[in-house]
Amino acid sequence: MIFDGKEEFVEALRRLVGEGVPPERIRVLTPFPLPEVDRILPRKRSNVRFFALIGAGTGTITGFALTILTTLSWPLIVGGKPIVSIPPFIIIAFALTILFGSLSTFLGFLLLSRLPSIRNIRSKEEYGNRFVILVEEGPTR
């Protein structure tokens, strides 16, 4: 089903779910994100957040490990600072937390949204500014 306007689309979607079509079988394509879609088709929250958490954690650990282990491997006092100087190392660990966290979130997004998709890059099919509902074959509830 293809709609030009947002309201008709939301209305049709609501009707479809009301008729008992299981939400897992409904796919929608929209030109911009609609909060209504999440309300009508409840899904669990995106797992991208776990990628963020794991990436950030890895970054922190890497930051401290890199700084502490490399200074210990060649212990040289510079500027009267202790070999393992935690305050400056916090800065490195912080930067790597953000770096790893962002990159892993981005990769998680690509993975979970099946991008890049060669098929869709080559596909000529475009819906433009229209709102689309696709229902897969299967029994209704």
Binding site: L29, V37, V48, A52, I98, T105, L112, I121
Partner: peptide, 25 residues
């Protein structure tokens, strides 16, 4: 565009990604 289609699932992950990138940035 990586073959972006704008499916419900893509937008859901996309919004979460954007929120996290903003919070990291």
């Amino acid at each position: 565009s990586l073959g972006w289609r704008g499916t419900g699932r893509q937008w859901r992950h996309y919004n979460m990604l954007y929120l996290f990138l903003a919070s990291f940035a």
